[in-house]
Structures are given as C-alpha cells and as structure tokens.
Amino acid sequence: MSDVLAIAEHRRGELRDVSLEMVTAGRDLADQTGGDLHLAVISGDVDDYATQVNREGVDAIHTVEYGEEFNHDVYTQAIEQLYADLDPQYLLAPNSVNGMDYAPAVAEGLSLPLVTDAVDLEEDGGLTVTREQYGGKVETTIDVEEDHAAVTIRPAEWAQAEGDGDADIEAFDADIDESEIQSTVTGFEEVAGGDVDISEADFLISIGRGIDEEENITLIEALVEATDATLSSSRPIVDNGWLPANRQVGQSGKVVTPDVYIAIGISGAVQHVAGMKGADTIVAINTDPNAPIWDLADYGIEDDLFEVVPALIEEFGGDVPDV
C-alpha cells in the first residue's frame, strides 16, 4: 500500500528517456513512503525495455506482452489490472503526449485523484505536488487529501536513473478485452523535413510571439542574411503558418544544439526550452524581465526587438527593411 507503480514509455522500438527519469522520481517518492518501486512495461519488446529500465532503485518490473506500439485502450486495461494486483499507493506516468492519452482515463477508471505535469513531489504523510500555471509564470503546490493518487511527471525535470539494478522481471498476465480496443494505430509520419535542418546549424536566430505580425519576419530575415545565421522559431510562429514546421525548435519540433542561440521575442515556455537548452550560449532579446527565457540566457538585451534588431543589422552592414 506504500508502493509506487511507474509506467515506462517507448516508441517505435526505443525506450524513451522519460522512463529513466521516472525511475528517479519514483525511487525518491518510494523512499519517502517507505515502499517499493514497481515499473510496468507494456507492449513491444518488453524484455528488452525491461532490461533497460532495470536500474538501481527499481524493486520489481512487470511486463505486459500485447501488441507492438502504444495503444491507450491496451494501456488503460493493463494498468488498471496491475494496479488492482499490486495495490500501490501512487501511480506515476509521464506527462508526454502518450501519457496525456491514457493517464486521465486510468485515473478516472480507478477513481484516483489526478495531478498532471508535476515538477516536484513531496510525501510526508500526504502527497504534495508542485506544478506550474499560467505558462510557467507561477508555481503552485497541490495537496492530495486522499491516500492514493495518480501523477504525471514533466519530462526532463528529473535526472535519468543510472547504475544497474537487480529487480525481478515478471510477466504479468493481463486480460485484455479486444472489444474495448476502439482505436487503431495505422502508422507514423515524420513531419519536419524540408530544405533546411536547423539541428545542424551552429548559429541560430530564433523568433517567437514577440514578432507580432507576419510582415515583421522580413526584419529578422535581414538580420539572418547579414549575419549568415539560420532562422528558427518557437511554436506559435509555425502554428500561424508564418514559417514551415522544419523551423520549429521545441518538444514537438527539433532539438538544437548550436554554439549560439539568439531568442528574439521568445518567452521560453517549457516546450520550447526542451528543444534549445543544449545550446552552448543563449542570448535573449526580450522586453519582459519576468519571461522564463531569462532563467536560461547567458546574455541578454532587455529591450524592444524592433529597436535592437535594426541596430544590429546596421552593425553588420545589412539593409534594414521597412516594416
């Protein structure tokens, strides 16, 4: 009853990093409850995945062989049956796109309170979850006033567990009702192809919401030309159709690791940060002193981009377009 059950994640034959992050978060939580850490690996090559998640601190691994890829109707049934069998206190799932597709259904099915996108967990006779709101402008603490709960944890927030583990790996015989499977995955598509690969660039100039209007992009293009940089962007620019999908940096776009990354008018939401925090040097140009981008920036200019960018273009002898 004091145990923690965490659900591993994989896609197209590969274990995803968040699985090992959940081992860290789950071990830490289980230490606080005084219980064991159980992992579940569902679908695909479960034995291979089980071996990979068998890190220090894992007490038991349960495998459910059924199908190849993630299917929420399979996951929901398997997790509910595992939960009934193991009777853990807390259920952990990743706050990934697939986690968002099954965790709320499992919580509802098991009548568990659900807290999503946790960035910290504290257990002291009751669970307290820290999570962000208002696009990361504030953090809140949520007390769970029940003995049990389901929590999804934010990817890349905990370190990946290291060290070999010696957990028992056991096959769990889940009774999957096929008539309950009403979604079928028919394939995958890579969307971010095209003329340029921003993940290969050494110098990226990236724009966000602060650019305001599509016409203003010509200003940044002039800077890109004058400095021989590569143009990238945050999600809203691509959502608006102002730049193609292959320019998008972030969780659903590309992960980039340039020498220099200049973030112009980008607030630095967590989904964007996931794609650029590996840059060697980060420069922010932003009017908002509270924008989360300042947590990451090495250098910055706290000023209006429409003042700074033209001056910068002139510094490098480029032509400043009228916008």
Binding site: T128, V144, A284, W294
Partner: peptide
Amino acid sequence: SSLAQTDMYEPESEGDATVWSGDA
C-alpha cells in the same frame, strides 16, 4: 475535491544572464 491548492508563488529565477545596458 480531494485536491487543494495550498500555495502559489513566482518561481525563483535561476538566471544569471549578463544583461547589456544602454540604448538599442
């Protein structure tokens, strides 16, 4: 509800950016 929001605060800035000053 069995969930209670007990606190809200601005996250501490982890930033130590060198901010250039002056006009544009």
